[in-house]
């Protein structure tokens, strides 16, 4: 079996996860689904940070950066979900194509 550098493995996987997140961001119309896709994209960024830190021997620096990303990501998710709840209350649907107030 071909042995592969763990960092390359994680980086290839990170590219795949980022692609899936980007596809979800483009193809979803549901607001909550869009936030799920954003979370997946942010997860790929944290994966890349930790993998790079592990490879370069500066794991503690990468950990402090990754913690910042996780905190920001969580706050974005909380605010986005609260916005989604309000959109559902006002427009009766989570569909982003209903959000334009000009489209009547």
């Amino acid at each position: 079996m071909i042995s592969m550098d763990p960092l390359i493995l994680v980086l290839i996987g990170m590219c795949g996860v980022a692609g899936v997140g980007l596809y979800g961001l483009l193809a979803s119309r549901n607001l909550i689904k869009i936030i799920v896709a954003l979370q997946i994209l942010a997860k790929s960024a944290v994966l890349a940070l930790v993998a790079a830190g592990s490879a370069s021997g500066k794991i503690n620096l990468s950990q402090s950066l990754a913690i910042t990303v996780i905190v920001v990501d969580t706050v974005v998710a909380a605010v986005g979900l609260a916005l989604g709840v309000q959109v559902r209350k006002h427009f009766g649907s989570l569909d982003v194509s209903n959000l334009s107030s000009l489209r009547r």
Partner: peptide, 27 residues
């Protein structure tokens, strides 16, 4: 999405080089 994956891989993978673990501060 596939184009983004290819671009990401093209930019990230050539930068791969593992270094020795250096002593650094705690996290």
């Amino acid at each position: 999405a596939l184009a983004a994956v290819v671009l990401l891989g093209w930019m990230a993978l050539p930068e791969v080089h593992t270094a020795e673990k250096i002593t650094e501060l705690t996290s």
